[in-house]
Structures are given as C-alpha cells and as structure tokens.
Amino acid sequence: MSLQGLFLKLYDFWSKQGCYLAPTYDLEVGAGTMTPDTFFRVLGRQPWKVAYVQPARRPADGRYGENPHRVQKHFQFQVIVKPSPDDIQRIYLDSLGCLGINLREHDLRFDEDDWESPTIGAWGVGWQVMLDGLEITQFTYFQQAGGLELFPVSVEITYGLERLEMFLEEKDNIYDLQWSEEVSYRQLRYQEEKEFSVYNFEQASIKMLQSLFKETENEAQRLINLNLLLPAYDHCLKCSHLFNLLDSRGAISVTERVKLIGQIRTLVNQIARKYLEPTGES
C-alpha cells in the first residue's frame, strides 16, 4: 500500500459512516483539532460528522531530515463525530480492519491519555491507541473547547498517517515510505524538512515574528469586536503558528510561554462565546 492508498481507504470508510469529507484547511496548524471544521463544530448542539486529512506543523519537531521518524510537518487523518456514538470503539476497530490489519494477530490497546490544548481552551478524556507498541491514534471525548463545556460530547479520532503506514509497510524510516506507487515520501518531503528545519531553528526572523504576533493578535481582537468570528479565528491560528516558530527559535521563556498562550486562549474563548450567542449562530 501507500500513504495515499491509506487515506483513500480511510476517506472511503468514514464517508460510509456518514462523514462529510472536508478539504484540507489552508492555514498552518499544529493539529487537525484546530481547524474550523473541528473547533466551531464541536461547540453547540448541532450534530456533526466530518473527516479530513490535515498537515500538522510542529516547527520544533524538525530534525533536518536526519531522524527516521521525527518531522516538522506530518499528516493527520482527523475524524469528528458528534454526538459520540455508543459503538464508536467498535467502528474504529473496523476502520483498522478495512486497512487490512487483522487485529487478532496483534496487540491493540487503549491506553489512558487525556488530551489538552491550552491555546484553544480545550481538553478531553481518552486514550492513545497502541498497536504492537506503536502509537497510531489519539482517541478523545471532547469535554471542553474555547473554555466552554461541550454538550453533546464529540468524539475525535486522529490517526497518525505516517506512523500507521510505517506499521503497514514494516518500514523503520519515514523517508522510505511510498506516497503513491510512483512517488516516495523522500522525493516529496526530504528537501522540505531540511530547509524548514534551517528556517525554524536558525533563520526565522525573531523580530519579524514578534511584531507579526503582536499585529495579528490586535487584528484578531478587532475582528472579534466586529463579530467577524471566522476571520478572527483564522488570526488566532496564525498567532499560534507564529508562537510555535518563536518557540523553536528559542525566543520564548517559560513565563512568556504561559503569557502568550494565555493571550491566544483569551481571544479564542471570546470567539467561542460569541459564536454560541443566538445572533452569532444563524
């Protein structure tokens, strides 16, 4: 199989479960959870089912293309189902089955792992799913987002696509994976990892990032005041990515870290509250 074969199968599986297949969101995010297709839709009472592939950018995880399994950008397959179905664990097992994994020959475990994203004021309870010792999925029942208690509760299933494909292909090196039959992961990604590692760790202009952060934050607040919540949220995502870049440049002390994350969260919490106001929902 190949990575694209993998996510085609997952698309197919979850589409049959009634999920809307969302296109990848066009902003840098640290996790699939952060895109509007998850963030806004887990708020409020409307049922929702969505699945999508989302690149996750984590600048500090870059290794100049030299580490066989750490990269500053990886791909997640994100599923949200709201409200969480009673048999969601069984459905998830079936999705692994459709990838050709015969679970009876393996050791699959749901290992306690609660999840939290202080930046978007969200936390949930659940597991990391371990397959023969490899973490392949994060499985979470969302309890809060944007600082608000969620009702009904959504379940989030996030597959780590490269991990899963390495498992399926029995490969030890991420760059040895096939994206398609013709194209390898190395061809597509190696140069990108190398250059972005240099950028993330050495070349990103701290001064520029700091001033962009400030301006973007101000813009987000201005947009919130105008009730333009979706554009405001986009600016929060931009802030979050700028923050991650500053962090990988080593330009954030521990106090500042808490402070900056708090600033973004304050914005996001305002957005969530306004989004649920009767006027904002229509």
Binding site: H69, D107, L108, G133, F167
Partner: peptide, 30 residues
Amino acid sequence: GLADAPADPKDFIASGNERVLKARLEDARF
C-alpha cells in the same frame, strides 16, 4: 513486554515492539 492477547503466533507483537523500541533508543542515543 505485556500484550493483551492470547498468543503471538506470527511474532508480530514482539517484532513490532522491537522496531518501535529501536527507534526510541536511536533517539535516546542521539
């Protein structure tokens, strides 16, 4: 290691864990 399974007939569980551990140790050595 402890698996939650009746048996490991094809050695998938042990060899899978070996592969993951090797990557972790590689990291630790780095």
